[in-house]
């Protein structure tokens, strides 16, 4: 049985990649943000997960609204990053893990999740920025990544309760995979922010911190929110919290918070980092 060893949450905004490309990590603006990551990198380097199941949203690179999936999963052995139109550098291909991916996809559809299953999938900053951030110098080629993509661009979006269910089913699938590989989860995006409209610039620090607390101790409580609630409280793009909720659904038993950082603003967002472990399957 594959071992789900822990989980990380992180922002995935393009500005992070730009800051790293321009070596701004130690500047006053960026330092409080990047200071959140050494403990996570240390944990990853010590625990060396074979596979990362990475929850993200596509921001209009792979999917267009001609055919917009609610949930999609990559099942390829490699994924390409590509030009997103505004000049963040394209990074090297991401390694996939098709066997476990297909196992999860099979298990999800069996459980009644209506996945779009992707053998070819371009991955955008939502997936790549966290990899660049965890393995500076884009030194992530050895890690196998399974992309799980959640619609946060077009309403109707899956609700928090459904995302938590998705995560639970994924956790079960990982644990039933006949292999001794180790798996970690990344929940990316968020937290409170709004890019569009007269209301642009909203950040809700208090809500972000509360969400981080709840995510550790009582994720079910977050399912009381609808997406419209999240938008009202945290801004139009606060719906990206759904990736964190989905990720949390895959953990089980007692969850321990090993590390936390919160800093706002970075670009237009509240940025939270969590490093979590859970009770291992017995």
């Amino acid at each position: 049985m594959a071992n789900l060893i822990g989980a990380v949450t992180t922002s995935h905004i393009p500005a992070i990649a730009n800051a790293m490309a321009n070596k701004l990590e130690e500047t006053p603006y960026w330092k409080p943000f990047f200071d959140g990551y050494p403990p996570v990198r240390k944990w990853l380097n010590e625990n060396k997960p074979d596979v990362i199941v990475l929850f993200y949203n596509d921001h209009g690179l792979e999917f267009f609204i001609d055919k917009k999936p609610t949930f999609s999963i990559g099942v390829a052995d490699q994924y390409q990053n590509a030009d997103e139109g505004w000049g963040i550098a394209t990074i090297p291909p991401v390694t996939g893990e098709s066997e476990l991916s297909w196992h999860i996809a099979n298990s999800l559809v069996h459980d009644g999740f209506d996945m779009t299953i992707c053998q070819e999938m371009k991955v955008d900053h939502g997936l790549t920025v966290p990899l660049s951030l965890m393995w500076p110098g884009n030194d992530y080629g050895h890690v196998k990544v399974i992309p799980v993509c959640i619609n946060c661009e077009q309403h109707p979006m899956p609700q928090p309760w459904r995302c938590l269910e998705l995560g639970k089913s994924i956790g079960k699938a990982i644990e039933s995979f006949d292999s001794d590989m180790t798996v970690a989860l990344f929940g990316t995006g968020g937290l409170s922010h709004q890019l569009d409209g007269e209301r642009a610039g909203i950040i809700n620090r208090e809500f972000d911190l509360e969400c981080m607390d709840k995510l550790v101790t009582d994720p079910e409580d977050l399912t009381k929110y609808s997406n419209l609630d999240l938008i009202e409280i945290g801004g139009a793009q606060a719906v990206e919290l759904n990736m964190w909720i989905a990720m949390r659904g895959a953990l089980r038993g007692k969850v321990t918070e090993l590390h936390r950082n919160y800093h706002a603003p970075i670009s237009n967002t509240g940025s939270g980092v969590l490093l979590l472990e859970h009770e291992m399957p017995s």
């Binding site: 609204i65 309403h155 609700q159 409209g197 007269e198 609808s226 419209l228 009202e232």
Partner: peptide, 21 residues
């Protein structure tokens, strides 16, 4: 309440919903 029944407007925000899509 169903998403489609939830007619709340969020000031200064245009939801990218089916109308906008």
């Amino acid at each position: 309440m169903s998403y489609i029944e939830d007619q709340r407007e969020v000031e200064g925000t245009v939801l990218f919903d089916h109308r906008m899509a």
